[in-house]
Design a protein around this nucleic acid. Structure first.
Lengths: 339, 339
DNA sequence: CTGTTAGCGCCTTCAA
DNA sequence: TTGAAGGCGCTAACAG
């Protein structure tokens, strides 16, 4: 492997000049830059990552923190897609992407501690956001920068930069979509309000319903035990027999609900994962564009050292993908749910 | 952050002695080792990753290569779970885990090239195995070590070390499970035979069927377009009306099939993901233990520099998880598929 | 604008 | 068994 000395020698300059050229230091003359650059090309030179990191006291790596696997969370392709986005941007900028994950909260914490202490990594991306997260506490204690995909939980200090869907608006949009299709008695189905996403989608739902002077029904159900869940949902529907539609906080949840309730029940869900296509009828769902969220998160993370840049939160627009799970009650003819 | 010089000073030894103690060099006397170790503890010393890497011309990182997102593949929690296993073992051994991924084959290749050239990473884990994989070609050209989760495709050189489920046996077991429940006319449903896993499961199926002198029916269906798939499957069943059961190469595929065929059709699938619990009736499925596969892969990858250790392939045992999707045709009373 | 020098933190000869 | 010295590859002062 060619080193910068080889390049310098071939270009007939000193290593420091070669280094300056490499890093785009404007002080270098055009011709010298040229010579160095062709030398690099000839030698197929690539700077050594570790050496550069050591010299710069940097590490050029972003660590991505996955949530602890809880129930079916890993069935959501969101994480891997966000990772794609993060990777694309990071590689562009010569950053490495490292992963922190764990089977338990404890293992995850150990992993993050390892990256902190051993790797001296100082840029993290949290792929989730939840209440009382010990990982966040750890990051704050160590005063390292982190970016959240999702709305960060409120803490003592200033909020970290984040990128998010406007889940409040998304919750409203889902609800309004149902209203526009003639539904009036609607329930919101969720699994876990410590996940801030779900909280917000629910809040959006409630806003619209309140505005319309309609009741905000909601039901928590984690579907760990099918039989039990079946009972709960059925009981709930007996209490509220007038319900014609559900907003579910995630596609998979929508799919599960679908297996319990009548095919006539309308459902709108979130994430637009493959699950929504698999469902039958296929689910009308709100796409949140995970790859873009990942890209944006990486961009924020890459600026984490420039305190000047007041890192404004980024909001990625969402989009309703209409499929066949919402019946139009306003239409004269009954809708055919073919697909 | 304390450096090794600080440690040395506090322990009253030279940096080189401290270094030797750190690395467990047996030449150091017990008392000296003691002194150095307590000094490290007192100072909360952690060696600097980049510095160590530079000095050792190593990088202490394992890069994990994800498949290109194709259809619904990221809905399979397999990858994230394998990642958990890899991370657990790697962290134990002070290795970092980096990620290579991409939205397209091209982007993935660029990412791998980046880790190769820039990061000088020389240990890779491939989370998939398929025919004609340009990533494999790239790795081989660069002569870096890699481990495959799954059966590696045959190449010019010697096979890389790998860890795998015995998918041939798993295919046989699934088939035998159906036979034991009285099924005789069985079809195998798959999406993509360039994925070697699917090939093998199918081969196992065929072995058993041939042995029983039963016909080996099989159907390829990727379910990209629901209506079209519906037609295909229906046509297939009309051609073979005697079929009572399917083996499907993955849970998600099982779920989709389930939405097309009668509830009376028996299905056994692979991966035991949450999807199999979500299905209705819930799917009898073969668990392949992704976390363990990940752990084993990491262990192999960690040995990639020791050519002495003839790295034997590791086979992780699989296990049938019985749920409610296979009817027992041998029983007198008809089975109730409650769940 | 460019070269010389020193050092990032650690490891490994070499000599004692 | 230990210390001194030099180097891994790159960069940033400091001169000129």
């Amino acid at each position: 492997m060619a080193t910068i000395r080889d390049v310098a020698r071939l270009a007939g300059v000193s290593p420091s000049t070669a280094s300056r050229a490499l890093r785009g230091n404007p002080v270098i003359s055009a011709k010298t830059r040229q010579r160095v650059e062709t030398a690099m090309r000839q030698l197929n030179y690539v700077p050594n990552f570790s050496a550069q990191n050591l010299a710069n006291n940097e590490n050029n790596t972003i660590a991505v923190i996955l949530p602890v696997d809880h129930h079916e969370i890993f069935t959501n392709p969101f994480f891997l897609q966000a990772l794609q986005g993060i990777n694309a941007k990071s590689t562009e900028r010569n950053f490495m992407v490292a992963i922190a994950t764990g089977i338990s909260q404890q293992q995850l914490l150990a992993n993050v501690e390892f990256m902190l202490a051993r790797g001296r990594i100082n840029r993290f991306i949290l792929l989730y956001s939840q209440l009382h997260d010990p990982v966040v506490t750890l990051l704050q204690q160590n005063q390292v920068g982190y970016v959240v995909i999702g709305k960060p939980m409120a803490t003592a200090g200033p909020l970290p930069p984040y990128i998010d869907t406007d889940n409040l608006a998304a919750g409203r949009d889902a609800t309004q979509f149902l209203l526009a299709h003639g539904h009036r008695q609607i329930a919101f189905l969720y699994t876990d309000l410590t996940k801030i996403v779900q909280q917000e989608r629910l809040a959006g739902f409630k806003q619209v319903m309140a505005q319309q002077q309609l009741p905000s029904l909601s039901l928590r159900e984690d579907f760990i035990d099918y039989t039990q869940s079946h009972q709960h949902v059925t009981a709930f529907l007996q209490q509220h027999p007038q319900i014609t539609a559900f907003v579910t906080s995630d596609d998979l949840l929508g799919l599960r609900l679908q297996q319990i309730v009548s095919k006539k029940m309308s459902i709108i869900s979130f994430n637009n994962s493959f699950t929504s296509q698999v469902a039958h009828p296929s689910l009308t769902s709100i796409d949140v564009f995970p790859v873009q969220l990942g890209e944006g998160a990486a961009e924020l993370a890459l600026q984490l050292d420039q305190p000047t840049a007041k890192l404004q939160p980024i909001i990625v627009p969402h989009q309703i993908v209409v499929r066949h799970s919402v019946r139009d009650l306003t239409a004269q003819t009954e809708e055919k749910n073919k697909n």
